[in-house]
Amino acid sequence: MSTSNALSSSPLESEAITIFREVAAEFERPVLLFSGGKDSVVMLHLARRAFAPARIPFPIMHVDTGHNFAELMEFRDRTVEEFGVELIVASVQQSIDEGRIKDVSGARSSRNQLQTVTLLDAIAAHGFDAVFGGGRRDEERARAKERIYSHRDEFGQWDPKNQRPELWSLYNSRHRRGEHLRIFPLSNWTELDIWEFIRAREVPLPSLYFAHKRQVFSRDSMLMAVNEHVEMLDGEESFEATVRFRTIGDTTCTAAVESAAFTIDDIVAETSVARITERGATRADDRVSEAGMEDRKRKGYF
């Protein structure tokens, strides 16, 4: 199947657009998770493509660990304004202040896992029944198993051994009150597909994705950015390097990679010859165990 002309949507775009429309038609209260990271930015652009010339008919939500890159926050606010969407911020700090969760401490601590409680609380408080996530099946082996419509029970849990069959493009949106579905329109996209979309559709991104000079230090053979939220250990020394981020989570769990990719074309070229997966290269949280992601997802993580 080839597309008829330059104004048409590509097969992967069409698949994602179809999913956005299907959810908007069948759910009462969808929300799109938006971190300002590239996958969520691509999602927002696809959502706009799905409903044009009308506005995106649901709000977006940022689960904010408080440990953000400043560039990312500026980008988030600028984007929200440009798209005219409603932004909901679910704050991990607030969950800590309210005693819902205990903050972590220590040089190696990260609030990454704490986000699950904040996320589930926000879903319940707002009554969201469909939550769009930017997860892709090529990212990680547990994600590779997940359906496009992924059911979560009232505790937000995923049951990987008992997933609903998902045939053709007929999606089952039914759920009980208090349950919700996670929806993954980018399921079949690869990292390279994301970058090719960004290039073809001229999608603006946070500057962190492009090569820049930055103070970093080396930990577990990854380059961590020197920042106020990460305590350096004895023997760790900072130095300046030309780096970029392949993924962006919060500052405590996302590492940079050395790169001279200053433009989108450079990045597409770099990505097509990459020998290490993006999460393998940059995510401290995925290195914990053989089934780290599966365990987190079961509990309701993104």
């Binding site: 090529d138 990680e140 198993k145 990987p160 051994k161 079949n188 053989e290």
Partner: peptide
């Protein structure tokens, strides 16, 4: 990719 599959050495669900 699932824990149960690795334990049992079988494919239970589709992987993409």
């Amino acid at each position: 990719g699932l824990r149960a599959e690795r334990e049992q050495g079988i494919t239970i669900d589709v992987a993409y």
